[in-house]
Every structure is written in structure tokens, then in C-alpha cells.
Design a protein around this nucleic acid. Sequence first.
DNA 1: ATTGCTGCAAAACGTTTGCACCTAT
DNA 2: ATAGGTGCAAACGTTTTGCAGCAAT
Lengths: 151, 151
Amino acid sequence: MKNKQATEIFRNFLKAGKNRITPERFEVMDAALEYEGHFGADDLYIVMKNSKSSVSRATVYKTLELLAHCDLISKRYFGDNINRYESSFKKQVHDHLICVDCGRIIEFSDPEIKKLPQLISDKLGFNFESYSFNIFARCKDPKECKFYREE
Amino acid sequence: MKNKQATEIFRNFLKAGKNRITPERFEVMDAALEYEGHFGADDLYIVMKNSKSSVSRATVYKTLELLAHCDLISKRYFGDNINRYESSFKKQVHDHLICVDCGRIIEFSDPEIKKLPQLISDKLGFNFESYSFNIFARCKDPKECKFYREE
DNA sequence: ATTGCTGCAAAACGTTTGCACCTAT
DNA sequence: ATAGGTGCAAACGTTTTGCAGCAAT
């Protein structure tokens, strides 16, 4: 229970959906919000395991879905068959550019894009829920790209 | 070799990349361009198998990647752990709205979105390659949504 | 007391790989 | 001749599931 405000949000979300308040879920929440950058469910499981947590892999997977549903974390997909997450608590909404050569991920934020999903959903007769926007591109400087890949 | 124009495009792409021109690759190309709507690699493999093709699963997977690289098909991801493809030959570029309740997929096209990926890539110092834009939303009319789910 | 949650291991799933044979160049 | 592609089955890595016991309500 390292983050009081997030704990409150998660707790209320769980209550509202008639999900139980368990210590394991808050353990996963803390670890997820602490993780720097993007992580797969298994990455987080390993980190927790290494810090002596006894939360199971299944619980990690399930809890991450819950956290994504209450917008404490965001679910991402960069095209490599792994679902990734990242904390979105107190972080500004952003999208991603992925270098298809070196895999580097650049975060950016565009006011134009932010408002479009809501508008389009309305126009098509849907209630907007979330969106994903990824750009795949190549570093202009191949040296820089190679450098990044090697580290 | 059902589609002369696409065959030509694919053949040139293969030559340019020093990939060999094989009958299997064109079998996959034909099947992929004929497929109505979005399909997983395995879906296509089953269809081909059922029409007595002897192309292997591995070849289907590999060839779909090649077809995506020369833009004859587009690779999609709708958040359910399956990579999907759809023909993009002679089809206008479009994006997708997915109903998170019933799974229905609506295709739409927005001029604003089309031009942004290129612009943003330039601004960030990358060479634009491709992009993906998905909106997740809910049918406004739950009945309509339910109806769709049940069929 | 009743559900729902957990941990564990096994299974499931889509996808990739290793290998021997084959074929386009 | 040789590099590259194919088919097959087995392996892979991520994710989900079944189940018995446990814990939040």
C-alpha cells in the first residue's frame, strides 16, 4: 500500500464491480505503478518473485487486467506478441512511435489525436472507451539506431 | 495466380529483396487477397487446407509477413492475442473501431488521422513506415449489441 | 456460510524453429 | 552448385484454466 491515492481508486473500482479487496491485488498494483517503462505481465511476475512476493503468475495476469480497466495502467501492443502495460497514474496520456529497426519506443503526445477517438465514436454511434495509436518508423540516422540496439 | 496486378507487385517485391519466387507464396497471396474481412494466419491455413492446398502452416505464417511488408495486406491487432490480416490491395486505407462488448469491428476513414503519422514521424526525426489506430468503444444500443453477439 | 480469489501446475493457444529434403536461381 | 524455401512436427513463450484450499464478505 505504497500509494494512498491509487489504492483508493483501485479499492473503489473493486467494490463497484463486486470484486474482493485482497492484499495480493494491492501488491500487484504497487509493483505495477513502480515499474519504470513498459512491462509484460511475466516481467512483473519475475520482479515480484525476486522481491520475495508470493503472488502467483495467474493473479498477476488477472490483476493487471483489473488495473487496466480502472485506468491505473494502460495496456499496449507493439507488434511482438506480448501484451505490455505501463503505469498511467498521474502520467499524461501519450502515444508511441516504435522504431522497427531497433525497437526503441518514443512517447509523444498530440492534441489532435487525443480528441479524435471521442469524436469518431460519437459519429459512429458508440460510447468511447479507449484507443490505441502506434506509429512504426525507422531512425533517420542508422548509426544512432544501431547504437541503441547494442546497449 | 488469380490476380495479375498483385502478382506483379509481389513478384517485384520478392526479387528486390532477393527472395525466391515460389508457387507456394503465390498460393498464399491469392488466398489472402480473396479472404473477406480480417483473418488470423491459422484461419487462412485452414481455408487453404480445406481447398486441398498442400502449403504448410509455416509457409503461410512466413508469407503473410512478406505480403504485409509489400503492403498487399495489412497486419492488425485488436487486443485478443491474435495477429490478424486483411487485404489492402485496391482498398482505401482505413482504421477500426472495435466494440468491447460484442466484438463487432467498424471500419472508418478519417482524413485527419491519415496525415498525422507521417507528420509526427518527421517531427521526431524518423522515417515513417506504418501506423495502427484502433478505437475501443461500446454499442450505444445494448440490444443491437447483444443481437450481434448472438449470431 | 457463501462466493470469489489464490496458488499451483498443466493445458491451451498462436507462433516460431530445426531439420532433412527440395527447388529456384 | 548453392543459397534459400518447404513441410513436418516438435518446441516455444505467453496466457488461460481446473481444481482444491483459503479468505473476504
